[in-house]
Write a protein that binds this DNA or RNA. Sequence first.
DNA 1: GCAGCTTGGATTGTATACAATTATACGAGG
DNA 2: CCTCGTATAATTGTATACAATCCAAGCTGC
Lengths: 232, 232
Amino acid sequence: MAGYDIKHDVNDKYSLRGRVFQKLREDILSGKYKEHEELKEVAIGEELGVSRTPVREAFRQLELEGLLQIVPNKGAYVTGITAKDVKDIYMIRSLLEGLCARLATEKITKEQMEEMEENIYLAEFHEDKGHLDQIAELDNRFHDILYEACDSKMLEHTLKDFHQYVLRVRQRTLATNTRGRASNEEHRQIMEAIKAKDADRAEKLANQHMINAYDNMVKNGLKEIYGDESTS
Amino acid sequence: MAGYDIKHDVNDKYSLRGRVFQKLREDILSGKYKEHEELKEVAIGEELGVSRTPVREAFRQLELEGLLQIVPNKGAYVTGITAKDVKDIYMIRSLLEGLCARLATEKITKEQMEEMEENIYLAEFHEDKGHLDQIAELDNRFHDILYEACDSKMLEHTLKDFHQYVLRVRQRTLATNTRGRASNEEHRQIMEAIKAKDADRAEKLANQHMINAYDNMVKNGLKEIYGDESTS
DNA sequence: GCAGCTTGGATTGTATACAATTATACGAGG
DNA sequence: CCTCGTATAATTGTATACAATCCAAGCTGC
């Protein structure tokens, strides 16, 4: 979503609003609250032991995060995400992750490069062991490292937003098949291109990595899950 | 309608929060509130004749819009925008406007195409007359038409965000030189490529259009205005 | 029986009161 | 004169009270 620059991920862990925000976000992404479900201020407030005020503010934040849709004087609803939205996001991400990889080729620090290598190594290990949760976690982390390495707050934030936005869908598809190994292999190639300072190659590989990820999702039934339901 | 989009244009014109939000946004973009200036809840509330509650909620929205930075227990500050931020945004926009033009080649409606042609025609007229305000307005509108024509809510919204975000800077540069005419000529070429269903050409032209716009900004002293001040 | 109005409950929108936190000014001690 | 601690004022964070709005159930009149 673009356009925010420095959203401080300070997420304000210790204010009530911040805690409510994080809790709701997690619950939405994990699927506890289904799409189009209505969230009521008092109910959430009572459940978390706070008043309506921090809940309301958390709602407003979640709306701009794209997880809630607030209808004035009516209510807050968990947003739906259509198959076309997912497709468009991957199309956009393909371009931007490519740009990100290109920039990272110049800007990546030694520490980031080391963490990236470690990430890939670890992912292979967990892949052998079949640790699905860790695989998903490492996959997310790989991309976060890449985003940070491009040294552009704007690009980093944009990509993190999109990345987060499709998490709801991705969780259900990555762990269910053999995409994990192929994905990690692509990560390795991107990493090696960056290490070799081959920006063109890094960009192309990152482009293709997104396309492959999307194709895999489609192959594994994205259409069925997120059919053509239209959002209100 | 924007229910599944990442951010919602539900600008809620008739709620107090919505009005406060729009007012503050406008004032920040127009430069009434300078960068790093502190906005106090009570002061804003009194100025607009409302209580702190809607002001606070508007602040939270503006933070996610990237116009405010809220420091917990301390205050809300107008965000700075660095020269690097602007550069990064144009880099990203170059890619995405290209994608947008490519998609629009397939998806544009007859009405949108007609408005686009009219836009370019009008812009030439105002260029001859030296109507700077209208030129800026038409320039904005051209891009909005393009965004709408790509038939992707996700891409449209992302681009609108970025577009809006650099308005603070662009206002000061477009009207001060001869970029207007060149810009409009580039619009015409993009439009003609779309009309000819030449997606590749439309994409490339849109890419270059952004690069040219950025180069022009740099040439006209962006660096001096938005030096290397670091955002906190 | 049904259309349309009325009314009541539920929910959000806003205002205000109170608590917690931060920053600053001032004075005591060195 | 400087430093540190305390007190106080200013500001934000949270809770609660009240107003406005929406929705649906039920009543009325035909």
